[in-house]
Computed example of a mutant assay.
Amino acid sequence: MLFYTGLFLLVIAVSLDGFGVGVTYGMRKIIVPFNALFIIMCCSGIIVLLAMTIGSLLSSFISPDIAKIIGGSILIFLGLFSLYNIVRPKRENTSDESNQNILTAVLTTPDKADLDQSGIISANEAVLLGAALALDAFGAGIGASMLGYSPILTAILIAFMSGLFVFCGIRTGILLSKNKQLQGMTFLPPILLIALGFFNIL
């Protein structure tokens, strides 16, 4: 039971960024059609499946105990790194913005995925957004496979949850408009990853 509880929490932690992106889109009235939402889900699932396949290959060369320690450590590192990015002082976006990786830019400022400024996320833009949202999931996928989670089941769950969170986030953003009550939720995914990492190591 604890094993599947850990899997469920991992899926939520990895997918929760999509909720924040959805809220941003809802508040800015950017439309994400269902075909774009499906593409985002597929990107997340495929990238996680790839990451977990790599993790499974790596874990076949090391003992289960060492694999658990490495897997847990990866989750802790990802959580700490995400936490650092949230709490670090925000610098003015001047010359640094032009040097920023486009995937990172989409995560920090989600409306940048709308490249043509049409107010609608197209199929090509959905691939960009899906890849950006799956960046954290790649590292977590490697760690999760070393902890013994099923690659196919985990990829399917993350794909489903990422689409669900983006959809729910859009609806929430439309309702809340300029309300900033959900900003505190940005701390939840990294804290979950850190807790899961320690839980699996101990």
Rank of each mutant, 00 (worst) to 15 (best):
P151H: 11
M146I: 08
V32L: 07
C42F: 15
L176G: 08
V48S: 08
S73D: 02
T109I: 07
L2T: 13
G18E: 08
R171P: 00
I191N: 01
D111G: 00
G184E: 01
G141A: 07
I69A: 10
I121F: 04
S145F: 04
L192I: 14
I194M: 15
V14Q: 06
L129S: 11
I152C: 02
S60M: 11
V48Y: 05
L50S: 14
L128P: 01
S73A: 15
S44Y: 09
G26R: 07
L37N: 13
D111W: 13
D65H: 12
N101R: 01
P190W: 07
I76N: 03
A195Y: 11
I46G: 07
L58A: 13
F77C: 12
T108G: 00
A51H: 07
L9K: 02
G197E: 07
S95M: 03
Q117M: 06
F198V: 15
L37I: 05
L188H: 03
I86V: 12
L58V: 14
L2W: 13
L83D: 03
F198C: 14
I62H: 08
I174N: 05
G55A: 10
G184I: 15
A140R: 03
K112E: 11
T94D: 10
I201S: 10
S82A: 14
D114K: 06
T94H: 06
G139D: 08
D65Q: 13
G119K: 06
D111T: 12
F160K: 03
L2Y: 13
R91Q: 12
G20E: 06
A195K: 00
F8D: 01
N101C: 03
G71M: 08
V106G: 01
I74M: 11
D65F: 11
L147A: 08
V48H: 06
G184T: 11
A132Q: 03
I201G: 08
I194V: 15
A134M: 05
I121C: 05
D116V: 02
D136E: 13
Q183A: 12
L176Q: 08
L182C: 01
A123V: 09
P110I: 02
Y84W: 14
I142T: 02
N124Q: 10
V11S: 07
G141Q: 04
G148T: 11
R91W: 00
V166I: 15
D136A: 05
E92K: 12
G18T: 06
F167A: 10
S73V: 12
T172R: 03
F38W: 12
L202Q: 03
L16E: 02
S15E: 05
C42L: 15
F198W: 09
F8A: 15
L128N: 01
A134V: 06
A113M: 04
M52C: 13
L10E: 06
G22R: 09
Q117P: 00
M185W: 14
A132N: 04
L135H: 02
V11H: 05
A13L: 04
S145E: 04
I158Y: 03
T186P: 00
A144L: 04
I12H: 10
A144R: 08
D114Q: 06
G143E: 07
I31C: 00
I62Y: 07
G163I: 11
T186Y: 10
I62S: 08
V166Q: 13
R88P: 00
L78S: 07
I40A: 10
M185I: 15
I30M: 04
K90L: 12
V21T: 15
Q100R: 15
